[in-house]
Structure formats: C-alpha cells, structure tokens
C-alpha cells in the first residue's frame, strides 16, 4: 500500500509538471500580454506533432527538444505581431481570435498528421523502469518531474535577476507605469508571447512520450492549463507551479480512489478555490 501511494505520488507530480509547463506559458502570456490564449492546447499539440516528426527524421529526441520550442515560439511571435497586437485591451476579441486559431491549428494538424493515435517512445536513455530495491518506477516520468522543477527555479531566477525579467514583472504589475519607466510593453509582450507558446511546444515534446497524441487533445490540454492557472492565480509563476501540483495530486489520487469522479473532483476543486479565494490561491486582485 505504501509503495502504491508512493508510485501514485510520483505519477501525479510528473503529470503536474507537464501541466506546469503549459500553465506557466499561459500565465506569463496573461500577465504580460493580458491575453487568455485559448489556442494554448493547440500549440501544445503542434509541439508534440513537430517533436514526433523531427524526432523521427533527425533521430534525436534531444535535438527535437531544443528545436521544437523555437519553432513553436516563432509561430507564437508571428501570431502576437500580426493577429493580437492590434487587439490590445479588447479581451473578448482576443479570446475569439485564439479560439479560431486553435480550430485552425487543430484541423491543419489532423489534415497533415492524420487522425490516428500516435505515440512517441521515450528516448533510449530514459526508456524502461528504474529498480530501487523492490520499488520499480519508469525513468521517463522522473525526467519530466526533474525538468519541471528545474524550469520553475530557472524561470524564477530569470524573472528576479535579469533585466528582461524585471521588465516582465513591471508590465505584469502595471503596464501604464512600466511604459512611463521607459519599458516598451509591446516588445515585452511580443517576447513573452513567444516564450509562452514555446513553453507549450516544449510541453508537447515532453508530454508526448507520457501521454498519447490524438485529435481532441488540444481542447483537453487548454482546459487543464486554464484550470491550473485559475486555481493558482493568474499571472504568477508560483501560482502556476503550486496550482499544477494541486491539480496533479487531486487528479492522480482522485483517479486512484474515486476514478469515476476524477474530472468532477477537479472542477469541484476549482469551484471551491474560487469561492473561497476568488483571485486564486496565490493570485492578486486584478485592477
């Protein structure tokens, strides 16, 4: 029983870190560009399929891990520049554009890669289980877990210590004030959108060996990322991190003990958090 709980704890945390990758991008984008990116799951799916294609043609998961986020991020930059920039401050229109974009991306991916379920094997180094005495656990989720934690620490450090990080925090806190300080919100917003979508793409590459690839996954991932961000608090990376862990744990242990109510539990959790703390666990009240 103890081993079962430990296994499930690791599983939940690994899935939580995947959610964190998605939620982090979504949260950054919301904080800086004030856009609720409902195409986020489609960027995830794009990353996953590109990872599949590049991984197969280049023969290296690791190369795909580096290249795919760059490509997806580039697309994100183009989307921000040519579709969203002109809609600054018009939340509903932006939502509509990202919904449309999500539809377009998802259908193009199905047209190009087919409707078949695809599954990506983990790289050889991370395939198979790890034996720790009587405890057996696959290596790949451990890699995802480590990567999520490292990324969290890294992004925190970047936000705290680098000039760009300071700009991001300034724009998130108050765009008007930031521009009077000589920061160009438009440029920061462009870069943040690129980084946010690149993170979704990274999530796709990392997530593909853990969960399968199929049409319809985009909407599911968008939903998950939104839930995490809302529970944790919008616009804060700590919120995305702890929110992801909470959702991952409730989801994982919900599936273990009350599988028929798993999805219900997550939404109930979200409703509960918002009812008690309307701006999310770690969120600030938005102006």
């Amino acid at each position: 029983m103890l081993l079962l709980l430990l296994t499930q704890l690791l599983n939940s945390l690994a899935f939580a870190m995947l959610l964190f990758l998605l939620a982090l991008g979504l949260s950054l984008i919301f904080g800086v560009a004030r856009v609720v990116n409902l195409a986020h799951g489609a960027f995830y799916l794009l990353g996953a399929y590109l990872g599949l294609a590049l991984g197969a043609s280049l023969g290296s998961f690791w190369l795909a891990l580096v290249l795919v986020p760059l490509l997806v991020g580039l697309l994100g930059v183009l989307v921000e520049r040519f579709l969203l920039r002109g809609l600054h401050g018009r939340e509903l229109e932006q939502v509509l554009v990202t919904i449309g974009l999500g539809f377009i991306l998802a259908d193009l991916l199905r047209a190009f890669f087919g409707a078949a379920i695809r599954s990506v094997p983990p790289p050889a180094e991370l395939a198979g289980p790890l034996f720790l005495g009587s405890f057996i656990y696959p290596k790949y989720p451990l890699f995802v877990l480590a990567m999520g934690v490292l990324l969290f620490l890294l992004v925190r450090l970047l936000l705290a210590r680098t000039p760009f990080g300071v700009q991001v925090r300034a724009v998130t806190a108050d765009p008007g004030m930031a521009s009077t300080l000589g920061i160009q919100p438009a440029r920061v917003s462009l870069l943040t959108f690129g980084i946010g979508t690149a993170l979704a793409g990274l999530g796709g590459v990392v997530g593909a060996p853990m969960i399968a690839l199929a049409p319809g996954l985009d909407a599911q991932m968008t939903l998950f990322a939104l839930i995490v961000v809302v529970i944790g608090g919008l616009g804060r990376i700590e919120g995305a991190f702890w929110g992801a862990i909470l959702v991952g744990l409730v989801d994982g242990f919900g599936r273990l003990f009350l599988p028929q109510l798993a999805m219900f539990l997550i939404f109930a959790l979200m409703a509960l958090v918002l009812a008690l703390k309307p701006e999310g666990l770690l969120g600030r009240r938005m102006a």
Binding site: L83, L96, V97, I99, G100, L101, G102, F103, I104, L105, A106, D107, L108, A111
Partner: peptide, 9 residues
C-alpha cells in the same frame, strides 16, 4: 473546424 476558425479570425 479550419473553416470556422478562419471565419472567427
């Protein structure tokens, strides 16, 4: 979906 998405954008 591609068509509807384009219409939205």
């Amino acid at each position: 979906g591609l068509f509807v998405g384009s219409l939205l954008v």
